[in-house]
Design a protein around this nucleic acid. Structure first.
Lengths: 229, 229
DNA sequence: TTAAAAATATGACATTTATCAGCTTTTTTT
DNA sequence: AAAAAAAGCTGATAAATGTCATATTTTTAA
């Protein structure tokens, strides 16, 4: 079951790709694999992670609890993504919680092993730096959207993001199953408001809904809505 | 006027502190100093920066234009902060604009010079990594607040942040002069809404206002408001 | 398979926030 | 110092969003 990192295709999608063959063999020897069932928690907010998770298959929602008591989805991660890089860098507990959206297959690489590479392999470090920088840019975009856009605009934007990341064909459904509550938690609104807007988008033939399946019918119009028209 | 980095106190506050004496001397030789007047722009969104700015004195607002056409303040930076690290890492134009909130004294270190250090001095790289990781954590907090909190909560929170960063004494005014529009742009609301709430906070003796001067009178109560009570 | 629980959907209403208009105060320019 | 411009303030109103109640559908568990 615990296959070799050297041969793992998923690795090619992230910074681990920068590691040399020798480094990979060392990592492979100490990594552990695990399956996380839909709805179960990969790690909790406030806990020390002490390593990096590499998503081999499935989708995972990363959330943060607001002082209001509601969970906010900060991002969705999927096959090939790394999570927990921050634990390599600072000795603080995680500020985020990760929960499986569907059945998840992940590898865990303990901090001690991979921190060596951070210090010695500057390509690897630069790649992690790039990932962080890109996450930060993305986070700034989200801040602006949350602050300035209406719920309707944010829903349109979110649907387009989901399409970018989870579309498999042009006319099929997106390859992700989110509850209405999850969708509301991405755009930062009440579940009822999200449902209402989804219904109205459906009525306007911008999307189609079959249970949790989402079909994006009119991305151009959604784009215009996201931009405020 | 262009003093030496080796002797600069401000440097001690950021990652440049990790550079060796030799590295600093090299940096010092190629850096440029400039003054930016209140209201003027340090750099524009969409432009290539190609280097890092180190704030020697003053306060600078970092903004991003929403597709709605309104500027959102993403963060405030002050003496000792670096800005533009992202330009060292990726070859993209800046996603943000920086404007002087008051008269600004900044140094600019060109990319070519400092990128060498990123590759060779791993302490420096790790320090930049830590800064990015910390910014990312902070950005996640802002996302959650924007998504989940009311304007009133966000204003209370913002006032407390301003206190943390710009208080000089317990009962004096904060050492920063923001317009009402700026404050609204931090919390992501209409200027009128920000003004109204500021007035009501003043009426409740949580703060005092004298023109642009802000006095924080009751931080504990503000904290409770920020948390939703 | 059926009962119970959870998720989804919709209406009615309350609350929050934005917008517009008009006025006052402060700042800038002449 | 006076005039003009910008910033700040307040009220009235409209629009957006949240909350609560309740019905329906789907999922889960017995």
């Amino acid at each position: 079951m615990s296959s070799k990192c050297e041969q793992c295709i998923v690795r090619q999608l992230n910074s681990l790709n920068e590691l040399s063959k020798d480094e990979l063999i060392r990592i492979s020897a100490c990594k552990t694999s695990q399956f996380v069932k839909k709805g179960e928690t990969l790690f909790e907010e406030g806990k020390y992670i002490n390593g990096v998770f590499c998503i081999k298959d499935g989708v995972c929602k990363v959330t943060k609890m607001s002082s209001n008591g509601r969970d906010q989805i900060v991002k969705l991660i999927k096959k090939g993504d790394l999570i927990g890089e921050r634990s390599l860098i600072s000795d603080e507990p995680s500020n985020l919680k990760a929960t499986a959206v569907n059945n998840l297959e992940v590898c865990f690489i303990p901090k001690e092993e991979i921190v060596k590479d951070l210090k010695q392999n500057s390509n690897f470090t630069m790649s992690i730096l790039k990932e962080l920088a890109s996450s930060l840019k993305e986070a700034d975009n989200v801040i602006v959207d949350m602050a300035q856009k209406t719920v309707k605009q944010r829903l349109a934007e979110t649907l387009l993001h989901l399409r970018e990341n989870f579309a498999v064909s042009d006319d099929g459904p997106l390859d992700i199953q989110l509850s209405r509550e999850d969708i509301a938690s991405i755009i930062g609104t009440a579940t009822e408001s999200a449902i209402r807007l989804l219904s109205s988008f459906k009525k306007e033939k911008l999307i189609n809904l079959k249970g949790k399946e989402i079909y994006i019918l009119n991305p151009k119009k959604l784009q215009r809505i996201a931009e405020g028209f």
